[in-house]
Amino acid sequence: MSLPCWNCGGCAASRFCDACKALQPPAHDFYEFLGMPRQLALDAKELEKRFYALSRQLHPDLFSRKPVREQEYALESSAVLNDAYRTLKDPIARALYVLKREGFDIAEQGTKDVPPELLEEVFDLNMAIEELSEGDESARAQLESARHRFEVMRNEIDDALQGKFAEWDVAHDRGKLDEIRGQLNRRKYITNLIARTDIAHVSD
């Protein structure tokens, strides 16, 4: 897509017009904006390098003596750059972003229904929290160990996700994204459980 430059009408195939060097409106897709390959297993060093390099080109501070319209594009471009970096550097946010772009509904579905294999754990956790709130200090140790088990589970999920990310990168297979979404839901559920065990610390 090569639109005419808003400023000189010349060819604006890239971020800056080839002819007059004016900044063009940003692409809104994070991968496209950063010029990164559409991958879930992303090179973190490369991402950081591009973030710094683009900051040096696009930050609004560098446009304060430019026309108002270019200043607006710099503000917009910097916002997209920062949003893109923040999203893509975090593997979970990155996966959610790709799911959304690929048309998956990533609303809070599934987080209310307890995954069947966790039913018993959740039941015990609720008991322990109740006991602690009633002053039974022995429940504190129980919460600590529950927290530890949940953290192990989360780490397992993270390992599994790593593998699936690499698999999706090879063929961009939609079925793989479905699996990833399933893991992400489970992960979110477990993260919420970990947060609930925190009350053991708060009441210290």
Partner: peptide, 8 residues
Amino acid sequence: NSTIPASA
């Protein structure tokens, strides 16, 4: 702690 400019 999001870097600014930031948008949603």
